[in-house]
């Protein structure tokens, strides 16, 4: 750049959020202070390792940083985990486990007072067990030098493990040596907040890549790009079909309509191949009676009903984010690999 300033593509959002925190003085009454944003970051990965959406150089994180008092750590960790579980369950990700990354008690490489670490680790483990998270055995030595964490790990369709969500404590960035964050306590003295990084999805790119494999492209209604396809039985019902589409769109649904000069059977097959979750079929008798037939991609014909009832049913399924067809998990069997030998 021309003047002596350097610019770089950010690899993380933490410093930015920290500077926003520091823009105004804070009292304990402001805490916990949570800043969230979908932040796009760039990291230079080796070219040989890039692939699809799971190993990329630019990605967007559903990132948030929480500034809180040490006493608030447990409730904040619980809130973050709750958040992540909500997301996983709304996408039928039942098969996940957590990793508790704790410090190696024999090492002194960690930043922050050991008592704080001990409290925080105990709080994380308490919350994990209380919430019955699978795999909540602490892994000593797995923590970064700046704080303990809890990761959410799922398997992809090839049985590979991917870390999706994470809740990461940080005693380093708020410290005097780094960004020197403070708040005024009830005692009118300066205190240092704890920072918690949380990202329930992790990276949107990786998450969607895993999601595509999880559902094999057959997304539940609420997620599918085209949720409902209106299919007139023949040309004669085109006008009625467009009305039906209009009603569905007004109810907030993403719709398509198949007006091709094809037989009904062919249009249904096309919609199934394109993995459209729901079809709304209408013919001359429907127009006369004010009805339509619903057809689920998996379950087939759901029967005829009034247009009102069909619209309401789909609007409701969309609003509830229902997952009516849980994806089949892939049984990619793995036996334990032999212990690492050097020859």
């Amino acid at each position: 750049m021309s003047d002596d300033e350097q610019y770089l593509l950010k690899p993380m959002n933490c410093p930015h959020h920290t500077m926003i925190y520091k823009a105004r003085p804070h009292s304990y009454k402001d805490l916990p202070l949570r800043l969230a944003e979908f932040g796009t970051v760039y990291r230079y990965e080796q070219s040989g390792e890039l692939g699809g959406m799971t190993r990329v150089r630019g990605f967007t994180q559903d990132d948030a940083h929480i500034f809180c008092t040490p006493e608030q750590v447990e409730q904040e960790v619980e809130g973050c985990i709750d958040f992540t579980l909500k997301v996983l369950s709304s996408l039928a990700f039942d098969d996940f486990r957590v990793r508790l990354g704790f410090r190696d008690p024999t090492s002194d490489k960690y930043v922050g007072p050991p008592e704080r670490w001990a409290e925080a680790e105990a709080a994380i483990e308490r919350v994990a067990r209380r919430m019955n998270l699978p795999g909540c055995e602490p892994e000593p030595g797995e923590a970064a030098f700046y704080g303990p964490k809890i990761d959410f790990v799922i398997h992809d369709s090839l049985g590979r493990e991917w870390q999706l969500g994470t809740v990461q404590l940080d005693y380093n960035l708020p410290s005097a040596e780094r960004f020197d964050c403070e708040y005024i306590g009830a005692d009118n003295a300066k205190h240092r907040p704890v920072m918690i990084h949380r990202a329930p999805l992790g990276s949107l790119e990786r998450f969607v890549g895993v999601l595509i494999e999880h559902f094999a492209g057959a997304f539940p209604l609420w997620l599918a790009p085209e949720q409902v396809r209106v299919i007139p039985v023949s040309e004669k019902s085109e006008a009625y079909a467009k009305q039906v589409q209009g009603r569905l769109a007004a109810a907030g649904l993403r719709t398509g309509i198949d007006l091709a000069a094809e037989k009904l059977g062919a249009k249904i097959r096309t919609a199934q191949l394109e993995l459209i979750p729901m079809m709304v079929v209408c013919g001359p008798r429907d127009e006369a009676a004010g009805t339509v037939s619903l057809r689920d991609r998996v379950d087939g014909d759901l029967g005829a009903m009034s247009l009102e009832a069909a619209v309401e049913r789909l609007r409701d399924e969309n609003a509830r984010r229902a997952v009516r067809h849980k994806p089949k998990p892939l049984a990619v069997a793995t036996a334990p690999a032999a212990a690492g030998d050097d020859y």
Binding site: G52, S157, L158, E213, G217, L330, A331
Partner: peptide
């Protein structure tokens, strides 16, 4: 299972869809 996994590969499906 490997064949099913290949079928579900997000790079293949991402392009197809």
């Amino acid at each position: 299972a490997l064949e099913e996994a290949r079928r579900r590969d997000h790079r293949v499906l991402g392009k197809q869809l």
